[in-house]
Amino acid sequence: MSEPIQFHFNIDGEDFTSAGKASVQVKKLLRQLSFDADTIRRVSVAMYEGEINMVIHANGGQADVIVWDEKIEVILADTGPGIPDVSLAMQEGFSTAKENIRSLGFGAGMGLPNMKRYSDDMKIDTVVGEGTTVTMSFTVPEG
């Protein structure tokens, strides 16, 4: 594999209303790097869900995006409360989002399922009281 290009983002946990900036930025960067529309959409939508989760559930975190020609990896790491039961959290419709967050349109319990569906591989490392790291990889189709 050739040398990857790496991007790093600090995700602010204070501001619900303008969350998603890093993902919008990544979409632009991947466009400049001439990836195909479907790959760009999958990566940026899945990253958005993870970015929002860090903001609303973990008070922010760090995002790293590593880009090879044939593969893109997105790593979202936070030092939030952790996820006590990952398989429950992965279920469509499961959410612990509070009312103030739901009123903004979040809390359908569809974020993690979307991340799983849009990525080719997803791994969740989480320890209650310490934090959560979600690693997603995306295979870039040839041509």
Binding site: F16, T17, S18, A19, G20, K21, S23, V24, K27, A37, R41, S44, V45, Y48, E49, I52, L104, G105, F106, A108, G109, M110, G111, P113, N114, R117
Partner: peptide, 29 residues
Amino acid sequence: LSWVMGRAQAGNVWMTIMTNRNIMAVATL
């Protein structure tokens, strides 16, 4: 928003009563 992210297709018109800032990131992505 997560339903929209998961289900809306590129080029769709998205009909919603939501008007907070978050809809802009969702629309873009």
